[in-house]
């Protein structure tokens, strides 16, 4: 198996060619932009909260295969989760991507994300994979702030 085969696994290419949850949410709780100035990845993330639950996530992106696939897989993993669980998922994913001690096993419901472990061998690409996840965290904070503002009103 060549290095590229390890990076461009079937799961990743599938999400790259057919990204899930692509698009916009008209009345989103928050809309945030994520940019990777080094390589030019750009994405806009829309998040819809329902109380403490992430009801919907949509992404429009101009990015590389890793960035696009990671965003697609992220959206599938977090929709329907509570904010507390989303944060746990993000933490688990990030620890896997930053792991220095070989492959990490994720909980069963996150297994698909393990396909992105191959990216670890390419340190400059890790930030491509992390961009959607960091943008999601920013989206949650922004959405929660918006909610607070509405409550005060």
């Amino acid at each position: 198996m060549s290095l590229a085969d390890d990076l461009y696994r079937e799961t990743i290419l599938d999400h790259y060619h057919n990204p899930r949850n692509r698009g916009e949410i008209e009345d989103a709780s928050a809309k945030v932009e994520g940019v990777n100035p080094l390589c030019g990845d750009e994405l806009t993330l829309y998040i819809q909260l329902d109380g403490d639950t992430v009801k919907d996530v949509k992404i429009t992106a101009k990015g590389c295969s890793i960035n696009t696939a990671s965003g697609s897989m992220m959206s599938e993993a977090v929709v329907g989760q509570s904010i507390a669980d989303v944060k746990k998922t993000v933490d688990a994913f990030k620890s896997m991507m930053m792991s220095k001690s070989g492959d990490v096993s994720l909980p069963e419901e996150m297994e698909e994300l393990e396909a992105l472990q191959g990216v670890r061998k390419y340190p400059v690409r890790i930030k491509c994979a992390l961009l959607p996840w960091n943008t999601l965290l920013e989206g949650i904070i922004t959405a929660q702030e918006e909610q607070k503002v509405k409550e005060v009103k």
Binding site: S2, A4, L38, C39, G40, G63, C64, S65, I66
Partner: peptide, 28 residues
């Protein structure tokens, strides 16, 4: 195809090219 993906696969073949905005974002 994103240039970064091209660059990555070329690197597997031992080829060093540049991929990205080349410090020319307005031109991009």
């Amino acid at each position: 195809v994103h240039p970064h993906d091209v660059g990555q696969i070329l690197n597997d073949a031992g080829i060093a090219i540049r991929a990205g905005h080349h410090c020319c974002q307005p031109l991009m």
